[in-house]
Amino acid sequence: MTEQAKRPTPPGFPSHGADELPAVTVDTANATLRTPDGFLGDRASSTAFRAILAEWRERLKEVDKEDPFGDAPPEAIGRRQLDHLLAEGDPEHAGLVHGIVEEFAQSFATVIKRLLKLKEWQGTERIVIGGGMRGSRVGELAIGRAAMLLKGEEIAIDLVPIRHDPDEAGMIGATQLAPPWIFLGHDALLAVDIGGSNIRTGLVRPHLKKASDLSAACLWDSAIWRHRDDKPNREAAIDRLIEMLQEMLRKAEKRDLAVAPFIGIGCPGHIEADGSIAHGAQNLPGNWESDRFNLPARLHAALPKIGGHDTVVVMHNDAVVQGLSQVPWMGDVKHWGVLTIGTGLGNARFTNRKG
């Protein structure tokens, strides 16, 4: 039994990866859609988008003997560059981007149709789209085009871009992992967003006095580490994460911010109640699925107290946490979900417990 299992979360707090959260029930998360060729969700990720772009570059070089992006490697072609080509590039280059968006949107719509056939996803009224691609005009067009394709097949579902910057939503959602009373008398909380390429830490201000439903919650400060570039082992990654959290606390102290004794974590994979990761963490540095590794326990050991109070650490799937940032605006529907287009395609389906 892990150390975290010996020290369960206090009464009133959800367990790690819990189905029942203060505002919603998590009907399912991290659903996998298998096909003979692999995982269907892999066709609707940022990796898939780049693969489509690479294929079109090869096609054009065969015909024109020229690559519109020159010798730039795939990872050097950013979303802003594609947005610029779409808006101000010559007609052929803009048409290229349009074609890539169309091809990706077709795949995205196919994935959504398959997802909606799953028992846990039936009856979904709205899907929030997050992840890195949502933060670009190209990504927004792909979402809009997929929505039109679904409506063309008479599939009644709303696809809406996530309201926050996706990089911030993954931390703001941590406010929904704890009962609101823990934030009373405090100015901020620590949040962690772990992804296949980056690890982010932040100080989130819940602003309960402004809005009791947490709709005014915002990111006060944050730090990002692109671990994919450094290729650390697991232990080095955890040490760096702890340093980032300690730096956030130092910044809060300098500004006289009272930090709640709570750390909310979004992490890829299926999160067990004891804080271990059953599967789905293959893109993280090292083996995070080991029976001997427990991230919440490691962070608690490093930061046992915050502001003189015992620290509570709660971890959930990263797509779940990003989706939770949208809870205040989902009151007009009962069943809704989130898809995060990143290194992979994260997903979660919720049922509101209030309203």
Rank of each mutant, 00 (worst) to 15 (best):
A319N: 07
A237E: 06
N198E: 14
W329Y: 15
G78M: 05
L116N: 06
G280F: 01
A297Y: 03
N283T: 13
V327N: 08
I157Q: 05
Q246L: 13
A94G: 15
G331K: 12
E103C: 08
I277M: 10
R50V: 10
K210V: 10
A142K: 02
V333D: 07
L40E: 08
M315L: 13
A223E: 11
S222Q: 12
A281G: 11
K254M: 09
G280A: 11
L345A: 10
A216T: 03
P166F: 04
F104Q: 06
G346F: 03
D213P: 05
F69K: 06
P74M: 14
M315A: 14
R50S: 13
G139L: 03
D83Q: 09
W225K: 07
M315T: 10
S212G: 06
A178T: 00
P285F: 02
N198S: 15
A348L: 08
V160E: 14
A191H: 00
F262H: 03
I306C: 05
D83Y: 03
D37H: 13
T340G: 12
V313A: 11
E55G: 11
Q246C: 12
D256T: 10
A237K: 01
A87N: 14
D229S: 13
H335L: 09
M171K: 01
G280L: 02
A216H: 02
L116V: 09
I77K: 06
I157R: 04
G89W: 04
D71Q: 12
V26Q: 02
H164D: 15
M133Y: 02
D193E: 09
R34G: 09
L214D: 01
E235F: 03
E103I: 04
P91V: 10
A348K: 00
K254Y: 04
H309F: 14
L40M: 14
G195R: 02
I77D: 11
R34I: 13
A216E: 10
G89H: 07
K113I: 12
Q322L: 12
V138S: 05
T175D: 03
I238V: 15
A236N: 08
Q122Y: 04
N283P: 01
D158A: 14
L96N: 08
T343C: 03
S15R: 05
E88M: 12
Q326S: 15
H186F: 11
R349T: 09
R250K: 15
A29V: 08
D167P: 00
D90I: 05
A191L: 00
L116W: 04
I143K: 01
E103R: 14
R79K: 14
A348S: 12
P328W: 01
P304G: 11
L257E: 08
I77V: 13
W181P: 01
